Amino acid sequence: MYSNLSADEILSQLASIAANPYERAKEWKMETGSKVVGCYIMHFPEELIHAAGALPIVLQVKEEPITSGHAYYPSYFCGPTRSIVDQAAKGDLEFLDGFVGGDYCIQVVGGTEVLGNLLPNANNMFFRLPVGNQPWTHGDIVTGLKELKRDIQRFTGNEISDESISKSIRIYNKNRSLIREIYALKSENPGLLTASEMLSIIKSSMVMPKEEHNAILETLVPKLAKQKDSRGSDAVRVFISGSLCGAPKSEVLSLIEESGAVVVGDDLFHGLRYTSNNIAEEREPLDAIALNYLDKNTSVPCPTRCDPKTDWPQYLVDSVRKNKADQLVILMTQFCEPHMFFYPDIKDAMQAEGIPHLLLEISHELDSIETIKTRLEAFVEMAV
């Protein structure tokens, strides 16, 4: 189906899916008669839902203004949670048969409760994910996974066997591996893909069947490998950090590149953070999923995990060096308390290592685009 398309044509199709993130899920539901489950951003074991024959999708932030949601959620909470509440209030999430929330962030907990009221016909499930990394944490995560597995089985009416979970893990691992291959190609040839194109690749993965996305990427990767693009060869090399839940604003990504920079790496949720680790296929599946949550905080630290051993500042220093980046741009979602808590340490680490960095606090409404543009242009010009 995709073999006759060029890389640009495939990327265009993925961008279309990403721009209308729920349409493919709605089509899949009509085609199969099966259930669609929304995952309330970050840290959810999609493999368990997939193993039950349902389609898990990561709920997406929409860039349209928040209106109806103001009646249900305060304006001083983060844009990603407010956007999802707003979508539910407008009826955009009525196609969901169920959704899963979690307890790793107080704003997500509140948003999940609101969704329960706004979507009375959708099954409301909860994933209890213990934070930190203590001797008991792994076992407690396994217990939480067993509770979620029980709830998914009741909801779908389908048994979730170890074999079905293992099969789902393999499918999801393949997707993560293919996306990391694209990251490696972009690292060697930064102008090969724009930051917005990388965003579309990952965002589309979050909202469509993984088997289908794998087939697309298996066609795309060899096509990209044959391409050489000199765009960005003389540009300032930038590493992007932040946007821990929602996708970064496409306007901001474009402004970074229009300012004369090229994005050479990231730790975004809609980026390396989502694809960083494969789940061990040789272990008992729930045990392997639990270990993966602990391992991910080591490979790409997350401030919501509350692990005292987390050294996100040093991780960023190492990532900037590894990607041979000239500068670091931090995209901090407005009112994201976990990210805000870590920023002073990040700032100190960057200053100590002599790494220029720019903090951009991004609101959902993005009412300061001209200010952001001016700051980015001045920042990138410093490295020229």
Rank of each mutant, 00 (worst) to 15 (best):
E353F: 02
Q327R: 15
Q134R: 09
K373F: 03
H70Q: 11
L199G: 10
A19D: 15
V85G: 05
E281M: 03
S254Y: 01
W312P: 00
L48A: 07
Q351K: 15
D229Q: 04
G260E: 12
N292S: 15
W312N: 01
L328S: 05
I84L: 11
Y73P: 02
F341M: 14
F44D: 09
L193A: 04
K226A: 13
W28C: 03
P120I: 04
P45I: 09
L96I: 07
N4L: 04
S187K: 13
R154D: 09
I66Y: 12
N323D: 15
D97T: 03
E113M: 11
E361M: 08
F99P: 10
K223T: 11
S168I: 01
E281C: 04
T298H: 10
A235N: 12
S6Q: 02
A215Q: 14
E46M: 14
N173M: 01
T32I: 00
E23Y: 00
H50D: 14
S254W: 03
L291S: 15
E212V: 01
K62W: 09
E365R: 11
I369D: 02
E181S: 07
R321V: 10
G110D: 04
P313V: 06
K223R: 07
A352D: 13
A280S: 14
S16C: 01
V221K: 10
S363H: 08
H339R: 07
M198G: 03
F379H: 14
K347S: 14
Q60W: 04
Y172S: 15
L316F: 13
K90I: 00
I152A: 06
A71I: 11
P301M: 11
N117H: 13
P303A: 05
L185A: 05
K324D: 15
P65S: 07
L224V: 03
V329W: 05
N297F: 08
G242A: 02
N277T: 12
I165A: 05
I106K: 12
V108C: 09
P301H: 05
I41N: 12
T371W: 07
P45R: 13
L328V: 09
E147D: 13
I362W: 04
L366C: 08
L115F: 00
S6L: 01
S299W: 05
K249P: 00
E370A: 15
S250T: 13
A247S: 15
G260K: 12
H70C: 10
S230I: 09
F77A: 10
M332Q: 13
N175Y: 02
H213I: 01
W312Y: 12
L331W: 03
T81N: 08
L359T: 02
Q153A: 08
P209V: 07
E353V: 00
Q334E: 15
A383F: 01
E113D: 08
F99N: 10
K309Y: 04
Q327E: 12
E258P: 00
P356A: 06
M206P: 03
I240D: 05
R128P: 00
G265F: 06
W312C: 00
A18G: 13
I330C: 12
G191F: 03
E251Q: 14
P308N: 08
L366N: 14
S205D: 07
E188G: 06
N189M: 10
G242S: 01
N214P: 09
S241H: 07
E212A: 08
K296V: 12
L115C: 05
S230M: 06
S75G: 08
V236P: 08
L11R: 04
M125R: 10
L115H: 02
L178I: 03
E94G: 12
F126L: 03
I201G: 04
T304Q: 03
L366S: 12
Y343A: 05
L217P: 01
